[in-house]
Design a binder for these strands. Structure first.
Lengths: 251, 251
DNA sequence: ACATGGCATGTGGTCGGACCAGAAAAAGGG
DNA sequence: CCCTTTTTCTGGTCCGACCACATGCCATGT
């Protein structure tokens, strides 16, 4: 094959600053809860302008490893935190909107993640978590509920089960993936023919999944969860052709 | 439970700009390949300074939906792209380093994702993809190979199988999750007692997984992949106690 | 007519300084 | 001692300028 030179693209000082901060994190010298020096002090330390430093901090903020607060006192300034959920959610939401993933891809990912969630929840979930999930299902079962709120509660149910499994990563991924298709799901719920029947059907599945989890029947719960998700996405996937690869991307 | 008021935190003009651009994406008015106006023109359109606009663009860039290039000509300026892999990789890498996820969480997520990958690859992968994966396994099997390169190739193998499954999302997630524990895996490989034996063992599994995929035996391939991943992470998980929840986060 | 070199133009990237809003600490007054 | 006012420190924003680089244009020379 040909040599395929590619530009070296050095410079971009804010990336160098970013890299430097990242190294501190990887080395364990910067940990969650630590505070960074004020921007006006830190910029000269790196030998860059405040703007460049701020852009690096902005990157860390969008990743969810840093929050900044103005003012004075112990809570002010830039602090290292661990809040991946919002960042991951926004990332997947935008990329799904841009067509980086098809709805089919999202469905398969949900199946994979939530199968694991339900299976693990059966053995690891506390009574408290399950009661909370049960309360959500109960609220979803109320007669007059609208698709809007149902969608909200459905998300909460699935995320709650995921978090009750004790796995922070799959929980975060589940929430983010579910979140990325929320508008689509909502539209689908609003356009369904017999909404009360659909609502009842979905909630029967929810209740049954929860029952299986309580009985420690993880595999059965996972199977039902897969059925639940596939059944729900199934009608959407057929009419969806946003997916896959096209032009102008990943370059 | 108590009401738990939380601050509303308005302002932050760059977030408003960001929100405005995101809406254009969600509405489909901004699509992959589109170019944004120059910063000096766009800033006054939003009624903000160039710095604030730039911070919004920087956020989009770290999410992987935008690239910017200086200079002049058709390739210059800010363009909408779809490159989630780097963004997702950096996100998980940093959060793993910060202890947002335990190694156990990562292992379970890998099992869930890669089970799906191998199962789907059995039915969807092209001969070409599988040959490529086979070539990687072949290179990993060479006698004198060092853990460093082995780790690199192992990542490529798993990611290749994931991408061959035709699911861009699970592929991206697999790559990012695998990437986040790469340093740990490398260290583990370097500290193994009998490296050649370990190498041979892992490659037997790789070859067997690939064989099962070629035979369209997706379930068996998934089972072996799970065994493969658990076996590999197993020794690490025991000595790892970074995980779970602690202080100063997610606030 | 064509190739070549230099110049103007336009892009993101960076810099320095200034000011604003808000919150806490410090100072002042009862 | 408590309450009010002032100061101080923080991130957030804005403005204007310059830099590096790539392109396009134009004059020049052959």
């Amino acid at each position: 094959m040909p040599v395929e030179w590619q530009p070296v693209r050095q410079s971009r000082t804010h990336e160098l600053v970013l890299q430097s901060i990242e190294e501190q994190v990887f080395a364990g010298k910067l940990r969650a809860g630590d505070r960074l020096p004020p921007e006006r002090e830190l910029a000269p330390v790196f030998g860059v302008s405040r703007s460049a430093l701020r852009e690096a901090l902005r990157v860390l903020e969008t990743i969810g490893v840093l929050v900044a607060q103005p003012g004075r006192g112990p809570d002010s300034g830039a602090r290292i935190v661990r809040n991946p959920d919002d960042a991951l959610g926004r990332l997947l939401r935008l990329h799904f909107a841009l067509g980086s993933y098809s709805l089919h891809d999202v469905m398969e990912a949900r199946v994979a993640l939530e199968r694991a969630s339900f299976a693990a929840a059966a053995t690891h979930a506390s009574e408290e978590d399950l009661d909370e999930a049960g309360a959500v299902v109960h609220r979803m079962s109320q007669p007059g509920i609208l698709p809007e709120e149902f969608n909200e509660l459905d998300t909460r149910f699935h995320v709650k089960v995921a978090s009750s499994s004790g796995n922070a990563l799959t929980s975060t991924l589940t929430a983010a993936v579910r979140e990325s298709v929320r508008p689509l799901i909502l539209r689908a719920l609003e356009e369904v023919d017999d909404w009360p029947a659909t609502q009842a059907h979905l909630n029967r599945q929810h209740a049954e999944m929860l029952r299986l989890v309580r009985l420690d029947q993880g595999d059965e719960a996972a199977d039902l969860a897969e059925l639940h998700i596939r059944g729900f996405h199934g009608t959407l996937v057929d009419e969806d052709r946003t997916g896959g690869d096209a032009d102008g991307a990943t370059a």
